[in-house]
Amino acid sequence: MIITEQKDIPEILESLRPFTNIFITGCGECAAACRTGGEEEVKQMAEVLRDNGFKVTGSTVIEEACHVLLTKRAYREHAKEIEASDAVLVMSCGAGVQATALVLDIPAIPALNSLFLGDTLRFGQFEEYCSMCGQCVLATTGGVCPVTRCPKGLLNGPCGGVDNNGMCEVDRTRKCAWIEIYERLKETGRIENLKKIVPPKDFSRSRHPSKRDIRKTRNVR
């Protein structure tokens, strides 16, 4: 899931300053789960905007705000309110903001900052385990990603910054990813994995912007 945080209200108000009539869009997927763009947050944001002198023309929570066709359909259903708006405040990740920007002629203004692809540890608690590098190494690292969970993305073991308790020098509250990898590989008899020199990563796999078209591919090839 894409983890988002709400921007500070003054920043949002500053972005909206050129406009008067605002439509608010939330997202029923990730932003709802992050409590940054669900029904409740959209409602609260509407109040804030009204308190600050804006006219809220309407609002919606799109099932999946990054889905261009769903987004288009949602705005069609709110055609009148959109017609009366100068801008849309989008309470979703950057992908959702851009879907709105793509389908509407009026400006799409972000209300959130997109942070990372997160695992949900429990409700409301997220951690970044995957950074979508396009070259998954988890088969050899005991199911713990060093690309993401080591701040330096080291591929051949820990740096000198791991302390005697196995904690990371960058964040002493966090266990060194490589200590975790070492322990897991040891437990499962796969310590051999650590003896091979892992060559430099192919960063061309994670270059931006990426695209993918699976319309002509089918299942497992």
Partner: peptide, 14 residues
């Protein structure tokens, strides 16, 4: 922005 395109072992190999 920090780089870490390589780690020390990869640097030695290079």
């Amino acid at each position: 922005k920090q780089v870490f395109d390589l780690d020390s072992i990869q640097l030695i190999s290079m």
